[in-house]
């Protein structure tokens, strides 16, 4: 080989081809084409079947921390405990404050701690089926870890995904965290009693919601004052918005 006539370049190309051919002989290509969440999705499907077999209506409540999920569940539990057989699973990274609050409100509740994880996954729910989650329950509400990002990606096998947004968070959260609001079957705006102290426009908020979710019903309520709560209670009972 010399540096003048181009034979070096030609050899380089030839060597590269030989190297690739050798690698092709050694390597095997395996087509996979499955989601990385495949395992979670399969467990979620078995959960969903269990819920169907035992006729449980299951809600996955997702929101930012501090949106008022636990207060809403306290009121829900108190108001519905005579008409439905409700179980509640509450997810947090640490501690059992939520479970204690709900227990005090008379709810059948179990705390799930996710430790390092930022969301509940289908396997955590599977572990409770037939244990805390009794076949005779008619309804199960799962309060996910307060987080507007990760819970959206993990199917738990629920019947309905509910996204909760409080007025204090601002109108634009659905546009900033689109996946969670896009996936929701129902969107609840909480803390409407505080609107008088805030610069919060329902019209603007609805615009942001409709930008990512064209169809989901929107309920506005205050768990504290009870305003709008009846429509939410009907939704829990029926799994759809009452006409």
């Amino acid at each position: 080989m010399c540096i003048d006539c181009g034979c070096q370049q030609a050899n380089k190309v030839a060597f590269e081809e030989i190297r690739r051919e050798k690698e092709n002989l050694k390597f095997r290509k395996i087509e996979v084409k499955t989601s990385i969440l495949d395992k979670n999705n399969k467990i979620a499907e078995t959960n969903r079947q269990w819920f169907l077999d035992h006729k449980l209506l299951v809600f996955n409540l997702m929101s930012a921390p501090g949106s008022g999920k636990t207060l809403l569940l306290e009121k829900t539990s108190t108001r519905l405990k005579d008409s439905i057989n409700l179980g509640i699973l509450v997810g947090d990274q640490e501690r059992d404050f939520d479970a204690k609050r709900l227990e005090a409100a008379g709810a059948k509740v179990k705390q799930l701690n996710t430790a390092s994880s930022c969301h509940l996954d289908a396997a955590m729910i599977r572990g409770e089926l037939g244990e805390f989650v009794k076949p005779e329950f008619s309804h199960l509400i799962i309060e996910n870890v307060g987080n507007l990002v990760c819970p959206a990606s993990f199917d738990l096998g629920e019947s309905r995904k509910v996204a909760i947004l409080s007025t204090t968070e601002g109108e634009d959260k659905p546009s900033k965290y689109p996946l969670l609001f896009h996936e929701a079957d129902l969107i609840v705006i909480t803390k409407i009693d505080l609107v008088q102290y805030l610069e919060f426009s329902f019209a603007t908020c609805v615009q942001h919601i409709r930008g990512v979710n064209a169809a989901a019903p929107i309920l506005c309520l205050s768990a504290k004052t009870g305003q709008g709560l009846d429509a939410w209670l009907d939704y829990v009972r029926l799994g759809s918005v009452a006409n």
Binding site: F27, R28, K29, I30, E31, V32, K33, T34, S35, I36, L37
Partner: peptide, 8 residues
């Protein structure tokens, strides 16, 4: 978010 293929 999925695996397309693997060279093994």
């Amino acid at each position: 978010f999925r695996i397309i293929d693997l060279d093994v």
